[in-house]
Design a binder for these strands. Structure first.
Lengths: 259, 259
DNA sequence: CGGTCTCTTGACCTCTGTCAAGTAGAGTGG
DNA sequence: CCACTCTACTTGACAGAGGTCAAGAGACCG
């Protein structure tokens, strides 16, 4: 039985010096911020240790006091919270390239759980290396902050989604968001039409039940917006999803680095 | 007819040099971060101009490109978004002492609307003054970031609240949060048991309808958890509200400045 | 090929929304 | 101090989106 928690903070001697695996992280920040090539190179050369996690492994738990900054190199992860009555709500979905925990560097305790969704690879960057990199590079500090602000903006859109859209539009809206975010990363081996969540996970993410997700998914399939083969769910007609969801990507702030 | 938008960015010559009105903002940051007296004094002496707003006035709108940093000195304000089908969702409630818009300093366009809930007074601080203050004061920069992170944490708890709690627990949970946040500010003239929202606003905040808020409020009143006189809503028994909501204040990170 | 985890489906239920009409406060003006 | 007016709050009847339960079928894995 593997340990429930990652033995993460064995004060991070970097093990592997990446063969450009951090490039996807650089690309993530570039998607919303301008960074000089000097900064980009410095980031790509950050020492890190690589960890491979199975689906469902916890990266940290509510109440923990994390000390490192993991970056998602491949696979998916999600943040979630559980209410006293046992209901689970997924509050964020992270895709390859996303930094997973700038927050712990500034807050004492974690207010949510972070768990892998699929097999995932993490680059564990040491706190001091990261701080050394950011200090004296205001544009990089700014890019990190922008990343945090965009995650918060996505959270607000999810509030609107769960609070005010019916099941069909709500599901469609999430599929649109994931599609846009994946396409924005434009990573080889990352298929923006492939939805990696089970129906139960979709339910926990959208504040619905698995049974109702099933019915709604079926309805989306009937209209041709998605296709399902076996357990695999794919976006079939993104334009139609946009229409069903009333989707606008303003909240993703993709224009942030434009003139 | 007053202008719909504030003429905010008349490039901010500070008009009034505060008689300690910014003290409440200092106190807000102190509630989660340690700051030296030097930093506190420098903050309190920031030049600012004072604006008084009527209930329901917009401070900025989705798509705007704000340029200043307003701080809420008295009264209440809220962030909200509107879906294509017309549903409104309040995504954040701001109380006296809260900075209202660090985000615009880093993101090009606003992704939500910001509106006053009651009569409110804002301190408008110029962008350059603020940046000058923060640069070379890392603890202050950190405190500002912590403030942003805590707002994001509150957003995640709201996702759990709307996604996974029924109307009764959901309403109770919000009342608990507001009570704790107001008490934490411990400001004279600020009554932590007084709920300043109409039933319609509570509905938009909790993803419910006004009619159902009415029924739920009535149920809370019957159990003695709240009291209503005329249109005024007050917390009557906070312990009972905690129980009904299954409330834990971990997500407010009030321990953040403790040893 | 057996085991386990998802997904499906139908019947039924209930929480919350909808509609619509009426009441009561709070402010305004006479 | 009394209309008058707005807005907010109430209330009841009814509807419907989504939840619950439970059993079975289909995928994927070793």
């Amino acid at each position: 039985m593997p340990p429930d928690h990652l033995p993460l903070s064995r004060n991070g001697l970097p093990v592997i010096h990446g063969e450009g695996r951090l490039e996807i992280f650089v690309r993530k920040l570039l998607s919303h911020s301008l960074l000089s090539t000097e900064v980009q190179n410095a980031m790509a050369e950050l020492p890190y240790s690589l960890r491979r996690l199975e689906p469902g492994e916890y990266i940290f738990r509510e109440g923990d006091c994390a000390q490192i900054c993991p970056i998602l190199l491949s696979g998916y992860a999600f943040r979630h919270k559980i209410s006293k009555s046992g209901g689970r709500q997924i509050v964020a979905l992270k895709i390859p390239g996303d930094p997973l925990d700038f927050q712990s560097l500034y807050l004492k305790t974690a207010d949510h759980n972070l768990q892998t969704l699929t097999v995932a690879e993490l680059a564990i960057v040491s706190l001091s290396d990261l701080e050394n990199l950011v200090v004296n590079r205001p544009p990089l500090a700014r890019a990190v902050l922008v990343d945090i602000l965009i995650e918060a903006s996505i959270g607000r859109e999810w509030l609107l989604n769960i609070g005010r859209r019916d099941a069909l539009a709500r599901l469609a809206h999430f599929l649109c968001e994931l599609h846009v975010r994946l396409r924005q990363m434009a990573s080889p081996g990352l298929d923006e039409s492939d939805i990696p969540l089970t129906q139960e996970q979709l339910a926990d993410l959208l504040g619905l039940t698995p049974v109702h997700i099933n019915r709604t998914l079926r309805s989306l399939e009937a209209s041709g917006a998605v296709r399902r083969t076996g357990r695999r769910l794919r976006v079939a007609d993104i334009e139609q999803l946009y229409t069903i969801a009333g989707f606008s990507d303003l909240y993703l702030h993709r224009d942030n680095s434009l003139p």
